[in-house]
Design a protein around this nucleic acid. Structure first.
Length: 288
DNA sequence: CACTTGACCTGTCCGC
DNA sequence: TGCGGACAGGTCAAGT
């Protein structure tokens, strides 16, 4: 589920809530594959370690420890990271948590801190994972070696964006946008949203997209992702932030999950098709 | 190499 | 209600 804006929202929440805390215990429930490290590594490099930084690269979270080890986390489709301190707000409260008592049946990993607060990794579909590796090894993970540039970095230019697609000239623009080695962090929601913003059909061959259209797509992708971060991400089904709260970008979406509704730009009916192996939302009137 | 498809899992929703 | 099938925000490992 979570794409760059959702993972960034989680990162910011973790940064305010767990930096400086010290780990007392680590528990793995229901799914050893969610956290494959040996118990000896956990004992040696997690227990008594202090959280010193929370970073993000593409859709991957990096929690740096004082032991010079890093907890690497990928939420994939249904992963959640929920922090629990003293207070949990119920229905009706502005900080209401959508997540009930923890651990629950989708909890895979629990981290307990010395102050009796907890961080829970929940993952219904078990695609996500948590790994503990030396901090210095993070850049050497296969994923890190091949992943493309961060699209929201201030020095990332429109020209660089266009050049990243040259290798994928023969495929369609949506498949290329979803390719993490082209640009980091784009998933199905923001691919559809940015293509709509740039008035480009997801079916277009990359080679046929003009320089001007790449400039539009670059601008629209940065616009929708920055807006989504401002709105705390998109909650379609599972996604919540570290306090268990939903994100509100879906209230602002123009095409995603808006099939059979009117295009906000031209009024034509938005359609949903299967494209690039994914559900794809298009206004066929304005996207050419 | 570039490209496409299926697999990994569980849960939910929709049509019969 | 029950049942089968399609589908869900992401990546990999296989095919061609």
């Amino acid at each position: 589920m979570p794409e760059l804006p959702e993972v960034e929202t989680v990162r910011r929440g973790l940064e305010t809530l767990i930096i400086g805390r010290v780990i007392r215990s680590v528990g793995v429930l229901n799914s050893p594959k969610s956290f494959p490290n040996a118990q000896a590594d956990v004992d040696a490099f997690m227990i008594d370690a202090e959280i010193v930084a929370v970073r993000r690269r593409a859709k991957v979270l990096l929690i740096d420890l004082s032991t010079h080890y890093t907890i690497v986390i990928h939420l994939k489709m249904t992963g959640q990271l929920v922090y629990r301190g003293d207070q949990v707000f119920g229905a009706g409260h502005p900080n209401e948590s959508l997540i009930g008592e923890l651990p629950d049946r989708s909890t895979r990993v629990m981290i307990e801190f010395m102050d009796n607060s907890w961080l829970y990794f929940n993952d219904q579909r078990k695609f996500g994972w948590v790994k503990l590796i030396p901090t210095i090894e993070v850049p050497n993970i296969d994923f890190m070696k091949k992943v493309g540039p961060e699209p929201l970095e201030l020095d990332f230019t429109s020209a660089q964006f266009r050049q990243r697609f040259e290798r994928r000239a023969r495929t369609n623009i949506k498949a290329a946008l979803l390719d993490q080695s082209v640009v980091a962090g784009v998933g199905n929601i923001y691919a559809d949203e940015s293509l709509w913003g740039a008035k480009i059909s997801p079916k277009r061959k990359v080679a046929d997209v003009t320089t001007e259209e790449f400039e539009d797509l670059y601008r629209e992708l940065r616009y929708v992702m920055n807006l989504a971060i401002e709105k705390g991400g998109s909650t379609d089904k599972n996604y919540v932030d570290v306090e268990g709260k939903r994100g509100s970008y879906m209230d602002f979406a123009r095409v995603f999950r808006r099939e059979n509704l009117a295009c906000p730009r031209c009024g034509a009916t938005i359609v949903k098709i299967k494209w690039a192996g994914r559900g794809t939302h298009i206004c066929t009137n304005c996207q050419k």
